[in-house]
Design a binder for these strands. Structure first.
Length: 425
RNA sequence: GGAGAGAUGCCUGAGUGGCCGAAAGGAACGGUUUGCUAAACCGUCGUACGGGUUAAACUGUACCGAGGGUUCGAAUCCCUCUCUCUCCGCCA
């Protein structure tokens, strides 16, 4: 969430930026400021009264010790009066703080300076791309047919075991998943990211910290018996590693990478977009997370984009990078680049990575800070990005590299996969 | 699943009603000394929200797992919850 102090000092900017994000309730800004004024007023009142209670209590102790019972009793009466006043003040203070917080949480992050205006995905700006779209041979088919032909993925079996959206990877299909995960992790650790293997279930505080709660609990699977959420992305457990921590400035940037399965209920999915690997309830992903000095987060955002770009290039897939417009960005992001790869048989662009700078929106919730040179605690900026989401990468690899002889494996993957082709030979 | 113990600052760990925001040691940071390293010595060393100030200084309140209660006054007493640890059982 945003910092009240920041909103107070930059009200016009906040309103203007919320406009870029097409935020529907700009009135919340005034509401927040009013609530904060109220909070300050009540705090002052409460603190002053409490101070009187405290000092009177101290005196009572001394009076008792010196045997002046009568004076002590008189003071006690005073304290009782103060405390009577304290009750209602405390109640309205608590109520004010709660509504302030509840309102603050409704405010999305502000789009950064480079975010294009716009409302829908059509307004996203293509930054650049690369890789040529392959020309497929006659008789080329989408990945779900290839998966069957080469016995790589069994969607029906997943239906039987769990339900739709939970495919079973088999044989070379399973092997290829493992190869991709290992390759991605190695690629990331070579760039200085520390490998993590976090829990796949998180508690409420963690889900709140990265912004999945309070509003998006519907996207997550929930274990009612223990109040745990299945992670929708490694971002949740990995970023929360540093929740409530104060880092030294010299420890920044913190760079982490993690492979995890991701679980998404995706209640709104339907139609042809959900065919095959395009949209699943459980999928594999390797994630990048960075915690950085506020002055450097945008430079690092660009670095991360280049990092992911190189990874996609190494797989030989045609891709494009989109700078998301204000209206299409996530609630918590300040700027997001989406990566899409071209799935040649479906003739469709598929999103395989989303790299975002959250500035201090997440870290303000999680209280991830560093001590600056003056010894003051400052919020760090958090960023994350996929590198990469596996199913759609797999879909593209299968479709784009299909030949009558089999499916060619990109060179970078061969040593992980153990061969250069999937075939029925 | 059964039994027990515990939760204090970055860590270890004292603290059973006022003198405790909290001893002591360690770590860390700054400095002195030093050919270098080590050691020694001196100093600093929680967080949040307010007031105050150009900024400081200064100052108020809260926080000793969380929430409630008793009391003039709670880290300390009582209740509830959560979590952790140990032993047994089960198990990868």
């Amino acid at each position: 969430m945003l910092q009240v102090q920041f909103i107070r000092q930059n009200k016009e900017l906040v309103l203007e930026r919320l406009g870029v994000k097409n935020f529907k309730e700009p009135g919340l800004v005034e509401e927040i400021l009013a609530l904060d004024d109220q909070r300050k007023k009540l705090t002052l009142e409460y603190d002053d009264t409490q101070a009187k209670v405290n000092s009177a209590s101290k005196e009572i102790g001394k009076l008792m010790a010196s045997g002046d019972k009568a004076a002590a009793e008189a003071r006690k009466q005073e304290v009782a009066n103060f405390k009577q006043a304290l009750g209602p003040i405390n109640e309205s203070l608590a109520a004010t703080e709660k509504s302030l917080h509840d309102t603050l949480v409704k405010l999305p992050n502000l789009p950064g300076a480079n975010v294009p205006a716009g409302k829908t995905p059509e307004d996203n700006v293509e930054v650049r791309g690369g890789g040529a779209k392959p020309v497929l041979a006659q008789g080329s088919v989408p990945h779900w047919d290839l998966a069957k032909k080469y016995d790589l993925i069994d969607f029906e079996l997943g239906n039987k075991i769990t339900g739709s959206g939970f495919p079973v990877y088999k044989n070379k299909g399973a092997r290829l998943q493992r190869a991709l995960i290992s390759y991605f992790l190695d690629f990331n650790t070579a760039a200085g990211y520390i490998e993590m293997l976090p829990p796949y279930l998180v508690n409420e505080a963690s889900a709140y910290g990265t912004g999945q709660l309070p509003d998006k609990e519907g996207q997550m699977y929930f274990v009612t018996e223990d109040n745990f959420y299945l992670i929708p992305t490694a971002e949740v457990p990995v970023t929360n590693i540093y929740r409530d921590e104060i880092l030294k400035e010299s420890e920044l940037p913190v760079k982490m990478t993690a492979y995890t399965p991701c679980f998404r209920r995706e209640a709104g999915s339907y139609g042809k977009d959900v065919r095959g690997l395009n949209r699943l309830h459980q999928f594999e992903k390797v994630e990048l997370v960075q915690l950085v000095h506020p002055d450097k987060s945008y430079a690092i955002l660009e670095e991360m984009v280049i990092h992911v770009e190189k990874l996609i290039q190494s797989l030989g897939l045609p891709y494009r990078i989109l700078n998301l417009c204000g209206g299409d960005m996530g609630f918590t992001a300040a700027q997001t680049y989406d990566f899409e790869v071209y799935s040649a048989a479906q003739e469709k662009w598929l999103e395989v990575s989303s790299v975002s700078n959250f500035e201090n929106y997440q870290t303000n919730r999680m209280k991830i800070r560093y001590k600056d040179e003056n010894g003051k605690n400052q919020l760090v900026h958090s960023l994350n990005g996929s590198s990469l989401a596996l199913p759609r990468i797999l879909a593209c690899l299968l479709e784009n590299n299909q030949t009558p002889e089999g499916i060619n494996i990109p060179e970078a993957l061969q040593r992980y996969f153990g061969s250069d082709r999937i075939s029925n030979g």
